[in-house]
């Protein structure tokens, strides 16, 4: 049971950052901890994962064409639009009015948006009638508990 006031504390905290406590030293009665001078507080996940919040957006992934890049059906892709796309970037791109996730391959002046699934061929951006890179995927999220993704 969580008391209502604890809920308030959680909500106040949870909205902005998630603190992952680093295993700290307990207060030592005898000798001072040799780690004292090295404590750096907790790891602030969102600031680390999301250095630029106004440019960061989350997308649902649907489909298996990025399997070899470690992105699977029903994962979440976190896109940072302030990152410059380069050779090898995983990007969200609008292709013929559809949003899709692809690997950007640049060779000379030729840009290709490639699948990452050995069963599928690569296709290049200029083959598509219209293609525009929406943003670079900074990381993706995959739940290892069934359907946990939609439960907050």
């Amino acid at each position: 049971m969580v008391g209502l006031f604890q809920v308030e504390e959680l909500a106040r905290d949870g909205d902005t950052l998630v603190r992952v406590a680093i295993m700290g030293q307990a207060l030592c009665a005898g000798f001072p901890s040799p780690a004292d001078d090295f404590l750096e507080g907790s790891l602030e996940l969102p600031r680390w994962l999301v250095p630029n919040p106004p440019a960061t957006f989350a997308w649902n992934i649907s489909g298996d064409s990025m399997r070899a890049a470690g992105i699977f059906d029903r994962d979440l892709a976190v896109v940072d639009r302030s990152l410059k796309p380069g050779n090898g970037s995983v990007v969200v791109a609008a292709i013929d009015g559809e949003m899709s996730v692809k690997r950007l391959r640049i060779e000379g002046t030729r840009a290709q948006l490639a699948f990452e699934n050995p069963d599928l061929p690569a296709f290049s951006l200029d083959e598509a009638a219209e293609g525009e890179i929406w943003g670079v995927v900074r990381f993706s999220i995959r739940w290892h508990i069934a359907r946990a993704g939609l439960v907050r």
């Binding site: 957006f57 997308w59 949003m99």
Partner: peptide, 14 residues
């Protein structure tokens, strides 16, 4: 509500 609701995020095809 693409940016504020986990259940309403936009979808990209892979």
């Amino acid at each position: 509500r693409y940016t504020t609701q986990v259940s309403e995020l936009p979808t990209a095809h892979a």
